[in-house]
Amino acid sequence: MIGPIPLSHVLLASGALFAIGVAGALLRRNAIQIFLSIELMMNAANLALIGYGAALGTQQGQIIVFFVIAIAAAEASVGLAIFVAIFRHTETIDVNKINLLKW
């Protein structure tokens, strides 16, 4: 319980969000949506971290989330820059068509 909120609810929500993220990452073709799904997974993890942190009465969870957010910002900037670079060459961001790096 965090205040009146049971931890299980938090974890349930986190797990559901993460699973949705996995589904998006695995099943979508649009690179941007895949990327968004990854962001969603990170947020699901964040939710779990904050939930656990609150349940254990520490701030560690929030600290980690802080770092996750910072890293997500870095990841987004580089990832989107890569998209721009790819798009300039191939005019698409469909990951099924971006498969030059193969045998």
Binding site: R29, N96, K102
Partner: peptide, 9 residues
């Protein structure tokens, strides 16, 4: 190595 990101994922 198919070059397909989704396979890797």
């Amino acid at each position: 190595q198919t070059g397909n990101v989704r396979n890797y994922a």
